[in-house]
Design a protein around this nucleic acid. Structure first.
Lengths: 150, 150
DNA sequence: ACAATATATTACGCATACGTATAATTCGGA
DNA sequence: TCCGAATTATACGTATGCGTAATATATTGT
């Protein structure tokens, strides 16, 4: 196969697209007055809004992040008063990650920014093409050994 | 529109896919004995192999990076002895970025790693679907205001 | 009960990229 | 020619993520 250089190389394109959407999202949070929320927080917040009190470990799996990445991420989110680490009563190695009131309260605004941003970013793209793209991305992840075979 | 959560959200998928390919590429360089080459170096190297002596500025455009990003990237590449900054004789603000012998010599091995990696990562994906994906990504970039309208 | 393993986190250093602010020049128009 | 605007780079601080190594606990097989 022949993979064209930067402007048309699929690897270049997914890299740029990722950064572009992330940057757009970040501006969205700032513009909507929830500037404490950073794009990277979303994976954790979405998981905790769904089920509070998960372990760092489990959060990492849901957000697709390595355990070592979780430490710093949770540090920042804790510093931003969105969550707290509480000792797990049944496992002294682990913490339960619990949302603070601020972490709970920010859900509505944050999810609005997220969905508005994605709506805009993916607008004018046929649903069928988005499905194709998702399949392609799943395959890429599989080919990189980064996705569980279902 | 409704954008499903992490495992099936297109934004989550492009982020993960980008990281996965980058990580795969990095391992490729290490396994092939060109461990000085980092994935981020490729945009710069591809441009310089094509046309040596470009300005940091121009390199940034070709690689899709901000000028402020170029400084650190070129610092690292210079430290790794892949290139040198030489003063531009016609513009005292600018440098010309020139490959060292090492920077030239590493072309064959690096491009092999790149194409082998991309071949593998994109294998088993219909060409037509890759085209669709590329179009989707171009549109995303357009929607983020990050791509020139041609 | 114990040693060997496995798990949950953290600590660190490295790699990438941005945005903002600055310094040094160059350039274009009055 | 001279001044304000544009251009070229850099310096910094911030945000993300990874991999490796270390620490503290749990679990398991014998």
């Amino acid at each position: 196969m022949n993979f064209p250089l930067p402007p048309d190389c699929p690897y270049y394109l997914i890299s740029r697209a990722t950064l572009a959407v992330t940057s757009h999202l970040k501006k969205g949070f700032i513009n909507e007055g929830v500037s404490t929320i950073k794009p990277a927080y979303l994976g954790v917040l979405l998981a905790l809004w769904d089920e509070d009190g998960l372990k760092a470990n489990e959060l990492g799996k849901r957000a697709g992040l390595e355990p070592s990445t979780m430490t710093g991420l949770l540090d920042r989110m804790e510093k931003d008063a969105l969550l707290k680490r509480e000792p797990d009563p049944h496992d002294r190695r682990a913490n339960r990650i619990v949302l603070t009131k601020a972490g709970v309260d920010v859900e509505v605004a944050s999810t609005k920014v997220l969905s508005d941003t994605l709506d805009k970013v993916f607008s004018s793209i046929p649903k069928k093409d988005i499905e194709t793209t998702k399949n392609v991305l799943h395959t890429i992840l599989l080919n990189c050994g980064k996705e569980d075979v279902k």
